[in-house]
């Protein structure tokens, strides 16, 4: 299928790949999706004392659009407060990356990843937070 230039750019040069060291302060980790559905996103945020997200890292198992959506999200959350990060909507991600309709679930998953990371941060370092859904396509 044809990918937009922005998806290809994030796919070829993913931003902020990796994981934070386990003991670091102010971490929130969200893992969403499932291997059986073909995509799993792990998003980590590092929140400063002032409530601003200082850094973010991701790892994604999934298609090019899933990788691009999570890569983009790490760029967008940086410098935002936790509450501002929660305002990021999947439609904005889909629009920025020009995702085709069959790939909208990737942007939904990225939005879920932010919510999961923030929830984890707020719950103070529980290992992994589950979210209810990874999108529409795996329901059957």
């Amino acid at each position: 299928m044809a990918y937009s230039e922005k998806v290809l750019d994030h796919y070829e040069h993913p931003r902020n790949v990796g994981s934070f060291a386990k003991g670091e302060e102010g971490l929130g980790t969200g893992m969403v999706g499932a291997p059986a559905c073909g995509d799993v996103m792990k998003l980590q945020i590092k929140v400063g004392k002032d409530g601003v997200i200082e850094d973010a890292k991701f790892k994604t198992y999934g298609c090019g659009s899933a990788i691009a959506s999570s890569s983009l999200v790490t760029e967008w959350v940086k410098g935002k407060t936790v509450d501002q990060a929660l305002q990021i909507k999947n439609t904005q991600i889909a629009e920025e990356l020009a995702l085709p309709p069959v790939k909208i679930h990737c942007s939904i998953l990225a939005e879920d990843a932010i919510k999961a990371a923030v929830a984890d941060y707020r719950n103070k370092h529980s290992a992994v937070v589950e979210t209810p859904a990874c999108g529409e396509r795996c329901k059957e």
């Binding site: 499932a34 291997p35 059986a36 996103m41 792990k42 790892k59 992994v128 589950e130 209810p132």
Partner: peptide, 24 residues
């Protein structure tokens, strides 16, 4: 694989079958 959270978990010795993935 460097990008894959599943690879990271595998390398950390996590049994992926034991993980409670989000319901689908």
């Amino acid at each position: 694989r460097e990008l894959s959270p599943l690879w990271e978990m595998y390398k950390d010795g996590v049994d992926l079958n034991s993980v409670q993935w989000a319901a689908h």
